[in-house]
Design a protein around this nucleic acid. Structure first.
Lengths: 144, 144
DNA sequence: GTTGCTGCAAACAGTTTGCAACAGT
DNA sequence: ACTGTTGCAAACTGTTTGCAGCAAC
């Protein structure tokens, strides 16, 4: 199993029969360089820095859609008007801490507190195949 | 402290200097009758059954906006194209379990698994005034 | 009577699509 | 050469606002 990187994702895309264009490489590189989830707009602007050409908004949209279907990218609910996306290594778990004032997003790295709750819920409510989305909101030290 | 009900909320609104119109009463009644979070569209349609007149979409929008500001209503992230809202008794806690197939929403009534995680996070990341939003997704027994 | 509420209709913003030209394989 | 990808521009959808007439207080 390879390390989750621009190259490994490129390889996954190629396996799907997809073409690796300058645009797509740029988008991938900017996603891997990102420190926080990005909007399509931000990805578009940032991709320019990586590939030298600014992909069309629709191109970014279609690329992200594609990656979402392949579970390489995930939509994060930041309670803002547009959608934000981040790469997801399928072997890791992600929860967020979001500042309500400056909108700064921190990836939490304490053990996920959900633990065996999912199994309890599955049993109690007759659901299967459970997953969850957990976001914390608060005020960061800069904004107090 | 009064029971959370159409009347208690009506009273809160009145205290804010707001007028209680037929529209507003209808919207309140339909929210209290709701078993799941509702979209503005659904609220508009349902209010008709309660007050006899169908409020304009903009009226529903402004009423919900108002109630959101007063923390009487909360937006729920169901990962669908439009927003969904539910009443919130300020003294209760709400987490959801959502079926990915039929979109059925269940309010969870097990103790919230987040427990003291918020305090830990506050300490570790220097955040204050923490809250969270937690949604579980899965497949309900009808949809397996 | 005053002031807030409502319906209407138009403006907005983010998202999504169709299509002809283009580029990766 | 073939077929997937791109940019452009337009269509869509949900959200938000301005305003004149109406209704609660």
């Amino acid at each position: 199993m390879t390390h989750f990187s621009v190259d490994s994702v490129t390889e996954s895309l190629r396996q799907e029969g997809l073409r690796i264009t300058k645009n797509r490489r740029g988008i991938l590189e900017c996603l891997f360089a990102a420190k926080e989830p990005m909007s399509l707009q931000e990805i578009q602007d940032s991709a320019l820095k990586f590939s030298g050409t600014k992909p069309d908004y629709a191109t970014v949209f279609r690329m992200i859609l594609l990656m979402e279907k392949l579970h390489l990218v995930h939509k994060v609910n930041l309670q803002r008007p547009c959608s934000y996306y981040e790469l997801r290594d399928p072997h890791k778990h992600y929860d967020h801490l979001i500042c309500k004032k400056c909108a700064h997003v921190v990836l939490i790295d304490i053990p996920c507190p959900i633990g065996d709750t999912e199994q309890k819920l599955a049993k109690k409510y007759g659901f299967s195949d459970l997953s969850h989305s957990l976001e914390f909101f608060g005020t960061c030290s800069q904004c107090v």
